[in-house]
Design a protein around this nucleic acid. Structure first.
Lengths: 146, 146
DNA sequence: CGTGATGTAGCTTTAAATATTACACCAGGA
DNA sequence: TCCTGGTGTAATATTTAAAGCTACATCACG
């Protein structure tokens, strides 16, 4: 599998909040329209981002805002927030190798060790990418399609 | 989502072939038993590995063998062979953001650019891991559980 | 209170991965 | 030559995970 769309939607929301958070009240319905998905999906994602301390969502009154500067929000944080075990499960392992076979008996543990390296590398790659570069590129694209 | 189990099964098969390929005739049925999955799944995976030039599978008579030394087989090769577009689709992108919204209109292209960095990093991580280290670790585990 | 939000549980739908069935084809041995 | 035990692959069914939907409790402000 792949890392689910939640991460992409989360980034979309954060960019949106950064652009319009000070002008309008950014609600889950508005974000749902922009993302082309369900308000409940949005609410779940916002809720995770809130718990992770990335955004502020006043319950009751509504209107999400960023809680940190863009440069201090990286993709690892976002990804961990919305899908806590996505990175652990990055590589799938077949779950029923035969315990009677020497290979089958040990392959699971060998694969887990091996994949740990990949997971760490991947986490580092995610950490290196922060929202400010993403927003910057977004603004470039905006200028391009005027 | 995650990279499917095919990659893990492929590694399992290659380790198995390396261990027993010169003693027994390693058939898809035997591998299916060891992996705990379907012989057809195995045959599909072996077929991909064969096309990628990693193994040799005499059709008709059967019995898979490695075509290259362990140190020359890396995880990127294996992964690309059994799941050609797994790395491209590493990160999922929501497919219907609103074209009426400036963010929705441009986010897809921004995300694609961003994820390309992650995909390249990940490919490199995969390339760095070769089968000889995996087999080596497998032998350590074997000794441990005597 | 009433309105317009969020928070979250539970169920349904959809889509992707995997398994199964079926059969054509191939190589070697009785 | 034909039987046996393999591979190759298509078509279909099953399983599982991701997303969407409905419903409702809760919250804050006017």
């Amino acid at each position: 599998m792949q890392i689910s769309k939640k991460c992409s939607i989360a980034i979309h929301c954060l960019v949106f909040i950064n652009e319009y958070g000070n002008q309008k009240k950014v609600t889950s319905n508005l974000l749902a329209l922009s993302c082309g998905c369900n308000p409940v999906t949005i609410r779940n994602i916002l809720s995770s981002l809130k718990k992770a301390g990335i955004i502020n969502v006043p319950s009751g009154t509504g209107g999400a805002t960023l809680k940190k500067p863009l440069a201090e929000i990286n993709l690892f944080e976002i990804c961990s927030a919305v899908e806590p075990d996505a990175i652990d499960k990055l590589m799938g392992i077949h779950n029923s190798p035969s315990p009677l076979c020497p290979v089958g008996k040990n392959i699971g543990s060998v694969l887990r060790d091996t994949y740990l390296i990949l997971q760490n590398d991947f986490s580092e790659s995610l950490e290196k990418i922060t929202l400010d570069t993403i927003v910057e590129e977004f603004h470039h694209k905006l200028e391009d399609n005027l």
